[in-house]
Write a protein that binds this DNA or RNA. Structure first.
Length: 337
DNA sequence: GTAGGCGTCACTCGCTTTAT
DNA sequence: ATAAAGCGAGTGACGCCTAC
């Protein structure tokens, strides 16, 4: 999941938002930017397809297609409140192009609509995420929803469920902080305990709060802020017939070939070792052979760029030369001595 | 003709296994 | 326990091919 890219885009966007922008601004500076940060190829009309409004006005603004997944995307200006007509238009269009999913956004609020839900348009809102949520939770939720690897495999329903669970967990933890913190403070004062941490521990042992509630109060909950992920550099490599994207973490000396990347089917006769390694990935279902290319079903870690390049190319490769960053520079450029 | 990409292969290094 | 042998992986050099 390209969380760091989405997080960076969200931070940049928030700096621009002095005045509520109109639809054109939302389209160019927010939606397309976030789609690109999430990993969609916004310059490829097969993937991010802008729709012309037809006579009846029943088309969404974009049709997003990736692998087996697709969704309709309807945009509004940020000053505009989202109305039933917007939802209906997006959902009708989604159904007409053979998908249950539509996303309606004014740039700030993102609503995921599921046509299969019973009830009126309001009941069809599967999820709502909003810029301005606490911390980086907006970027995190949006990165999960717009992850191209999720759409590639048509696993959006699971992604929605995951974000719903995280939202519920954040609500639960907020409730715990609101209701249980006074109890710990009371115990701390009554027994003259020096720190909140020790008081929370005591409250837990006394049965006034559960251990899980103690962990939430001490910031050890599942949705507690995580340490910053290590910096990663994005590389691509496209030997004949394949196209792979990899993240390089210099601080960890780690290479990760991203899910959705493709590798050549053929393995060179001399590269038996590469053949054996790829065979294991195929047997594990990590690589899938569609008769044309091998597709990575999930992220795969490598210790060296040559191993990653070898699996993609089906032959021995100098990874430091063949992987190129977004500016076209070889990986050598980022190599530390 | 030249530059760049690609394919092949040999060399080096490090790890594991085996023999003493 | 240590040395030797074997093996696999990573890298770089070199030649071929193609586009300009």
């Amino acid at each position: 999941m390209p969380f760091s890219e989405v997080q960076g885009a969200v931070q940049a966007i928030q700096r621009w938002l002095d005045e509520p922008p109109g639809e054109a601004f939302v389209r160019q500076c927010i939606v397309l930017r976030l789609l690109q940060a999430a990993g969609f190829d916004i310059w490829n009309p097969d993937e991010v397809h802008p729709e012309e409004t037809n006579v009846t006005g029943n088309r969404a603004d974009f049709l997003i297609r990736r692998g087996r997944g697709r969704f309709a995307l309807e945009l509004k200006g940020m000053g505009t409140s989202l109305q039933a007509r917007d939802y209906q238009q997006a959902l009708n269009y989604a159904v007409s192009v053979g998908t249950r999913w539509a996303i309606v956004t004014n740039g700030r609020v993102w609503l995921v609509l599921d046509e299969r839900r019973d009830g009126d348009w309001e009941a069809k809102i599967a999820l709502r995420v909003e810029m301005g949520q606490e911390g980086d939770t907006f970027a995190s939720d949006l990165a999960a929803l717009l992850d191209p690897a999720v759409w590639e495999r048509d696993h959006f329903a699971q992604a929605v469920e995951g974000v719903q669970q995280r939202q519920q967990q954040r609500k639960d933890e907020a409730r715990i902080r609101r209701d249980k913190k006074p109890i710990v403070e009371e115990i701390r004062q009554f027994y003259g305990i020096s720190t909140f941490e020790l008081a929370a521990d005591a409250a837990s042992k006394m049965g006034r709060i559960t251990e899980a509630e103690r962990d939430v109060l001490l910031g050890k909950g599942a949705s507690a802020p995580q340490p910053d992920p290590p910096e990663a550099i994005t590389f691509s490599y496209a030997p004949a017939g394949a196209r792979a994207t990899a993240l390089f973490f210099p601080s960890l000396s780690l290479w990760i070939v991203k899910a959705g990347s493709t590798a050549r089917r053929e393995v060179k006769a001399y590269a038996a070792a590469i053949g054996r390694r790829r065979e294991k990935l195929l047997q594990a279902g990590i690589l899938v052979d569609d008769g044309r290319v091998l597709t990575y079903q999930r992220d795969v870690e490598y210790r060296t760029p040559s191993a990653a390049a070898g699996d993609v190319a089906g032959g021995s490769k100098n990874g430091w030369d063949v992987w190129h960053d977004t500016l076209g520079r070889p990986a050598q450029h980022h190599r530390s001595e």
